[in-house]
Amino acid sequence: MIVPARERIFAYAILIAMAVLVLIPVVAGSLTAFKPQIIWISSPPVWFFEPTLENFEFVLITRQNWLHLRNSLIISIGSVLIALVLGVPAAYGFARFRFRGSKGLMQWLISLRMIPPIVVGLPFYAMFLFLERATGLGLRDTHLGLILTYQTFLLPLVIWMMRGYFVELPAAMEESAMVEGYTRIGALWRVVLPVVWPGIVATALLNFIFAWNEFFLALILAGNNTSTLPMAAGTYIVRARVEWGNLFAVNLIIMMPVIVLTIILRRQLVKGLTFGILE
């Protein structure tokens, strides 16, 4: 599509204005992460200084936040993988087969997505406690516990998003593969999944962001062994004092993977989020 130059300039002007508005606090905060402690909260703020990595060194090594980083990675990647492995086939099933109650089930799934985490936090804790007492199976303060809990929110998202992609595809695509000598699973794997791959990438990224940023459930269900980066960030806000430099250092560590992933995957992401709209 060719857009006239004047319109393009106008569009970019609006986008840049919006980006500046959004980015000012992010940039200001991120700069603080590189400031030495004495100028963290100097007034007026100092814009030019010799950057230092001492805040990062402090949070990652002295305060051992690299452990939280590790926990966050394990839990987020684990959650996304399980959600995809369970959710993608489920979404395909919902897209291709109508069975008794399938419509109601889909609506129930989307309703799960509407529940604020605070509603399920305590019940999950109670459930874990009960499970532990009844069977000795401990899920509190384990990676698996959080990964399973997150499925409440990730699975509906995966199923709803992926179902949309599958519905867009003509059934004839896998049906012809089935006539040509493949099982339905084989056809799904070899024909359908390569086509909806951008959709899977987009879905995975959105889910990763949810799990990566999640704070409340982690606060209730994680413990010393499993506490995640957002929780570590919380430890720099203590009583009357906020350790701005350290807080922003952790913030930057939290933001980086999401930013980097989005940049790397932006082509698939755009393709995935606009699936079926263009072309």
Binding site: P170, A172, M173, E175, S176
Partner: peptide, 10 residues
């Protein structure tokens, strides 16, 4: 073997 109405290409 089957040929479909909408082009069922991969």
């Amino acid at each position: 073997a089957m040929v479909f109405q909408n082009f069922s290409m991969y």
